[in-house]
Amino acid sequence: MIPIEYFLALAAILFVIGGYGVMTKSNAIVVLMCIELMLNAANINFVVFAAFNQDITGQVFTIMSIAVAAAEVAVGIAILLNAYKMRKSTELDDEKLTSMRW
């Protein structure tokens, strides 16, 4: 059987890649993708812990969080579309999307 550390390391690496992407990428759609990556890292954690603890709660939590992530991306893409119509840009470090500071 594969030891639990391998799964946790995979999840941690995914989470860190996602976090790095959120902080460095300037395109809002890529940032949303990176957020998905972070959420899926947590989902892997839940499933692994559920499997190793012989407990169903973690899998239930995963289903909930997948549904939440789907809703969040749906709303997020709609908001980005709206922003693109108003400002003609989805670049987060663009002048067009950073009119409010401090």
Partner: peptide
């Protein structure tokens, strides 16, 4: 301005969700 605020809110809110979920998964483990 509302469009810009919405983008900022959804990106930062999504990231906070991911952080929270990762923390909860650790607590659960």
């Amino acid at each position: 301005r509302a469009a810009e605020a919405g983008v900022k809110y959804v990106v930062i809110g999504g990231m906070s969700t991911a952080l929270t979920l990762y923390g909860i998964s650790m607590i659960y483990g």
